[in-house]
Design a protein around this nucleic acid. Structure first.
Length: 437
RNA sequence: GCCGCAGUAGCUCAGUUGGUCAGAGCGUACGGCUGUUAACCGUAAGGCCGUCGGUUCGAAUCCGUCCUGCGGCGCCA
């Protein structure tokens, strides 16, 4: 069929009312009677109802009636405003070209999450997944624009790595020629090397963790958006992190309102959070809040557990940054904050927690500059210092104050889209029990 | 690593104390219906009741094993 094809979004507007239009896409729904056939056509931009009557298109009527869901078609017709049509406009078909007649599509209504995930290669066509993936694209695009506008350079770390970073037990082993190495858990060690060249860097890249976590907040393969910068302390990094997340929210609210509405994501909740200051509290203050408002007694020095984070966040409607966790429970590279008002030594570190039970979306810290205390911390954790020889070199040649953090892209998307499960925030989730499709 | 839940038609699920319990809806095929909103009405096809074993005259149902998936904790983003 000859003609200039328009997106469904374009055609769903007063601009095309009364005019002929060509559209192409996939059949989303069909309904028919003896006299009328209704085809709801889907393309990447939306859906439009297309109608034909036996009287008007006798040659095409039976063809239209036989089409199964997800068949690909090109359609020609006249656009007419009609309140009965979803979206307000419908196409009165005058031409139908069947590009490919689909077999019976396995996904219908009333699907279990398990079945949908088994068929994610097909479920990805759904309006819901379409909306989530559009938000995801905006989120990663916004991360790039945020840092680039501020003079950061994108820096790409290796994915194969010989080193652990966050503890050896959660690494995926990979056969590498005649030896065994690991998939990266964090770009951090390499980022710390790179800031001596580029000073301010960021990335968005995949991360692999073999944690045996079977929760709605964990993936074995997820994407982290990280930053690392020289000459800044961890409180500077907190400010940047808050600005980054606000920047992302702003972009999504700007570009994905329809998607958020379709997902039932209550975008107003996000917009409100942009107008207010986001709290920064210390770990010690968090314990006070838990004790006073949640009736939870946490012993100082214990890391906050999931239930405690959830209960703490019930007191807030915006993300909250918790700083200065006990040094004891933190990774070796996080330095001590001297002179903090706390019962024990605390680290120059922070976590940003999202409201609504979405958990930690960002973790970050200042990095220890001193080779002596780094070595001591590694030994305390039972690591072999030799494995970190090149990392320790970074403290031998012009060591400077620097800080960085990592943002969990899927957790942020889950919060923005109000998803029940993080597995829907990534196109093809990898978990403890799923690597297909 | 610990604790829990679930596997019956392509899909979502019923199935009582073990004894017409092989069932419904959706989807599909065929037919009907003058505008439907994942319409409606009729007919039909479609099942090793996850696996292996046990108890029993008799097992979808009770017991055990294994497999698969899901969720919670811990840990993390």
């Amino acid at each position: 069929m000859d003609g200039e094809y328009r997106s469904v979004r374009e055609v769903q507007s007063s601009e095309f009312d009364g005019r002929e239009a060509f559209v192409r896409g996939w059949i989303h729904r069909t309904r028919s009677s003896n006299k009328y056939v209704f085809i709801v056509l889907r393309d990447s931009t939306g859906i439009i109802q297309c109608v034909g009557s036996r009287e008007d298109i006798p040659d095409l009527f039976d063809i239209a009636k036989e089409l199964l869901v997800e068949s690909s078609v090109r359609l020609k017709g006249k656009v007419k405003k009609d309140d009965r049509a979803p979206g307000g406009y419908e196409l009165h078909m005058t031409g139908i070209e069947v590009v490919h007649a689909a077999e019976r599509f396995p996904i219908t209504k009333d699907q279990s999450e398990e079945f949908l995930r088994d068929n994610k290669h097909l479920w990805i066509r759904s309006r819901r997944m379409n909306a989530i993936l559009k938000v995801r694209s905006t989120v990663t695009g916004a991360i790039h624009s945020f840092f680039r506008e501020r003079g950061y350079h994108e820096f790409t770390p290796p994915i194969f790595t010989p080193n652990a970073c966050e503890g050896g037990s959660t690494l995926f082993e990979v056969k590498y020629y005649d030896s065994t190495i690991f998939l990266t858990q964090s770009w951090q060690l390499y980022a710390e090397a790179a800031i001596f060249s580029l000073e301010r860097i960021y990335d968005v890249s995949p991360t692999f963790r073999a944690e045996r976590s079977k929760t709605s907040r964990h993936l074995s393969e997820f994407w982290m958006a990280e930053m690392e910068a020289a000459w800044i302390g961890y409180l500077d990094a907190v400010r940047i992190a808050q600005d980054e997340v606000k920047h992302i929210l702003g972009r999504v609210l700007n570009e994905n309102m329809e998607d958020l509405e379709l997902l039932g994501a209550e975008p107003e909740r996000l917009r409100k959070s942009l107008d207010v200051e986001w709290p920064v509290i210390t770990y010690t203050e968090a314990l006070d809040i838990l004790k006073e408002k949640c009736n939870m007694d946490v012993e100082w020095g214990k890391d906050l557990r999931t239930i405690e984070e959830e209960r703490l966040m019930e007191n807030f409607s915006t993300p909250v940054t918790v700083i200065q966790y006990p040094k004891e429970v933190m990774a070796f590279y996080k330095p001590v904050e001297e002179g903090a008002d706390a019962p024990g030594p605390v680290a120059k570190c922070f976590d940003m927690l999202a409201p609504g039970g979405y958990g930690e979306i960002i973790g970050g810290s200042e990095r220890d500059m001193d080779i002596g205390s780094l070595k001591a911390a590694l030994e305390r954790e039972g690591e072999s210092v030799e494995n970190y020889d090149w990392y320790l070199d970074l403290r031998r040649y012009g060591s400077v104050q620097h800080s960085g953090y990592g943002l969990g892209v899927e957790r942020l998307i889950a919060w923005i889209c109000k998803l029940d499960n993080i597995k829907d925030a990534i196109p093809f989730p990898r978990t403890l029990n799923r690597v297909r499709p």
